[in-house]
Write a protein that binds this DNA or RNA. Structure first.
Lengths: 246, 246
DNA sequence: GTAAATTTGTTCGTATGTATG
DNA sequence: GCATACATACGAACAAATTTA
């Protein structure tokens, strides 16, 4: 299925960029699989109703992102497949990534201690003003930034979280060292926004691009909220997959 | 909180558009409330490091979207705040998006017959070239357009789908008349994209805004795919909520 | 193995859109 | 409104690498 390709020439978005986005969406959507060959530039130019140069620029942008590779005389090929991120009761980023043969890594990019405001006290079921640890993390697969996440946890329950996370690169491991053996997802809220500057820099996403925003609450085995997270996902590289009814 | 902004001059997105998106994000984010006055153009020009002409163009775009109103001599004011519409535990996503069945305030905005391409034949498990019915629907809540959906079904299995849908306003009913008593959701994929021109018009969303894209497959009771749907949701008005007990 | 066809890569020129001052 | 600089888009031609007949 080729995605609808009506180009808008007065929206303040360059045509080559609109074509780039369309192609990327088709790759993420699965119409163009990893390893498959793109139609020739001349054919794409006809399809989009533009000059071949314009298609070439879109391809060049995708090439510099590592999504395509062009071989003179042979064609242009899809080099990276989209990462599918399945959410469910036992969502673990590292499990998802490694099951798709990619090397997972989480990096701590910041942390602070702050008091619970109304939203956080409600989500974590703690009194207003409770001291919370806030950690900012960047999750990378195969060297490609995928997710920027901000998590809040009750400081009293995980006093050494920042140190343990920095050592292991894994929240699961850090929580275990605080005596929390396992946890499960309570609820997940999903929406889309335009990327903010800091996230754009962290994710290597262009300004004006959309990100998936996933807000979630994790419960310990006693059903008590342990972690509230607001994650921003590079939408052009990821897709959430939910099995069964939604 | 003003959203910090580094402008990119060769990203294929015009500077006036980057400024427009930044201002819109601040309005959506609540920094600029409805009725409040924008800083003067000259001040915004300084803040963004651009010429006043460029700021004016961004403001003009927001004015034509009905978000701002400029009064000569007085200033520029925020005239509309975005509304939020949450899909929660009480609102089944499937009821709203693909099936549009039990509460048929969905409207048929188009239909056609086409051959299955690689993606569709894979999703629906039919041979390449199988004749499919494609239906386009628009879902409106409280008079506000929320979702544009495109569904494909095998024509041989539901030859009178369009007529039956038009009569009943319900895909469930139309499927029953084709002998398909019930169906269930197989899988849902979620990603975010920039809105396409046609969807922007249908949804009343500004170009350059993100939409949630939800792709889903429905199975009949024998486990055979019956319907593949690709729905686009106005992300600034909606939020998907997934409960942990999937 | 060679020639032709295909496909990407490069270089001109021209016109239009965007942003500044 | 006007002059300037740069980015974007188009068109034509040709070169280089590869595949196909």
């Amino acid at each position: 299925m080729t995605i609808n390709t009506t180009l808008d020439r007065s929206a303040g978005i360059a045509v080559w960029r609109q074509i780039m986005e369309t192609l990327k969406a088709e790759i993420v959507g699965g119409s163009l699989e990893k390893g498959s060959r793109l139609p020739p530039e001349s054919e794409l130019a006809t399809r989009f109703g533009v000059n071949r140069h314009t298609v070439r620029r879109a391809i060049a942008a995708l090439t510099s992102e590592g999504i395509l590779r062009a071989d003179q005389g042979r064609g242009t090929f899809v080099t990276s497949a989209p990462l599918n991120y399945t959410i469910g009761p036992r969502t673990r980023f590292s499990e998802i990534v490694s099951s798709q043969d990619r090397a997972p890594s989480g990096r701590l990019i910041g942390s602070s201690v702050e008091e619970a405001d109304a939203l956080l006290s409600n989500q974590l079921e703690v009194p207003l003003g409770t001291m919370l640890i806030r950690v900012e993390t960047l999750r990378v697969a195969d060297g490609v930034p995928m997710i920027v996440g901000t998590s809040w946890l009750e400081q009293a329950r995980v006093p050494n979280l920042v140190r343990d996370y920095a050592e292991s690169g894994s929240i699961t491991t850090a929580l275990k060292q605080a005596g929390i053996e396992d946890y499960k997802r309570k609820q997940t809220k999903i929406t889309a926004e335009l990327v903010e500057l800091r996230d754009a820099q962290q994710l290597g996403v262009g300004l004006g691009q959309p990100v998936l925003v996933v807000e979630s609450v994790n419960l310990d085995m006693a059903g008590r909220p342990i972690q509230y997270t607001r994650a921003r996902l590079a939408a052009d590289r990821m897709q959430l997959v939910v099995n069964g009814d939604l």
